[in-house]
């Protein structure tokens, strides 16, 4: 088996940014392994547009187009991936790490009996073979995982690599996959789209104001909302806030929430647990407002304000509004 395969993901009719980041990881690995990179996309409808964006330094680009892929199911993704792997015989499969791939990639590995490492920040070649670097213990420890067997399956964390640039290099082939069907033991009833998203998704937000347990009570939360409105930012939070039921999970930043990459991240009353910091490692400028000078967050933040947010934020908000005028 030889070659690196990237299976991309789509949002609407376009490939995701994270897909292009994963291609960049594959191209880096291809230099080290001296093996070519190929790509594959699955989806309903005509994928030609997405394929053009995805076509970055590939030797082959396979499309699996089927109306049956309209609705996500792990088993269908596994079936399509198995068909692509049977055709291309790659030694490594790289995938963007997402809610979908973290669900179907392990099921693919289990079918193939392949070694798998999820949510990695790098893939390197050492004496022992291919090693995936994976944050563990919430992000406090990085482990080098040597992966045995082929294809080695690795998912790549968002925001670690810069996007690859399309070059229209590979000719595009379509692959028919028969038997695309969901697991008969799992029936899809409905997709529940988030209520309560404020339109600006955390993943793409330029500015995020995030509140934690230190915000004290729901009665103070309006300060976070006003700060977000004044700065044009999206609202994020720590897991503590979701656990208390103030906000829905789609606002949570961190390891088990969203990995964000804003220009400006303002953490209010957030202590800076590793699991939270895992979500902001790619934030450009981090500001922390916390009344404990020893809080871990100050080791990650670029700017810190030591104080009670109830005193700091109102003045901050008024001042920011002044700039807007």
């Amino acid at each position: 088996m030889t070659g690196i395969l990237v299976i991309g993901e789509m949002a609407g009719n376009a490939v995701t940014k994270q897909t292009l980041e994963t291609v960049a990881a594959a191209l880096q690995l291809s230099v080290e392994l001296k093996q070519p990179v190929s790509g594959a996309l699955f989806g309903a409808g005509d994928l030609a547009g997405a394929a053009a964006q995805f076509n970055c330094g590939f030797s082959t680009l396979l499309l699996v187009e089927s109306e049956r892929l309209e609705q996500y199911s792990a088993q269908q993704s596994v079936t399509a991936a198995l068909a692509v792997i049977a055709k291309l015989q790659p030694s490594v499969l790289l995938l963007p790490h997402s809610a979908r791939t973290r669900d179907w990639a392990p099921q693919l590995a289990a079918k193939l009996g392949s070694g798998l490492v999820l949510d990695c920040v790098n893939v390197v070649v050492g004496e022992d073979g291919l090693a995936a670097v994976k944050p563990m213990y919430g992000g406090g420890v990085w482990g080098q995982h040597v992966v045995h067997g082929e294809p080695a399956i690795i998912t790549v964390r968002a925001g670690v690599f810069d996007c690859a640039k399309p070059d229209a290099g590979a000719s595009i082939e379509r692959l028919e996959v028969p038997n695309l069907a969901p697991n008969p033991r799992i029936e899809h009833l409905e997709t529940i789209v988030n209520e309560g998203t404020d339109g600006q998704q955390l993943k793409d937000a330029k500015t995020i104001i995030s509140g934690g347990r230190g915000t004290g009570g729901q009665e103070n939360w309006h300060l976070i909302e006003e700060a977000a409105a004044a700065t044009g930012g999206a609202i994020g939070c720590s897991r503590a806030i979701v656990d208390m039921g103030w906000l829905r999970w789609n606002h949570q930043v961190g390891l088990s929430g969203t990995i964000v990459a804003p220009e400006l991240y303002i953490a209010v009353g957030i202590s800076g647990a590793v699991q939270h910091l895992a979500g902001i490692s790619n934030a450009k400028t981090v500001v922390a407002i916390n009344n404990d000078p020893d809080a871990e967050i100050f080791k990650r933040a670029d700017y810190g304000v030591i104080g009670d947010f109830k005193e700091v934020l109102p003045a901050f908000i008024e001042h920011v509004k002044g700039y807007a005028k």
Binding site: G115, W142, Q144, F298, K299, Y303, V305
Partner: peptide, 21 residues
């Protein structure tokens, strides 16, 4: 027979310090 072997673990210690306003 395992499929993945951990070769090394490295603790990520933060040494940074924010500029205090």
């Amino acid at each position: 027979a395992g499929k993945v072997t951990i070769k090394a673990l490295d603790i990520q210690v933060r040494t940074g310090q924010a500029e205090i306003i």
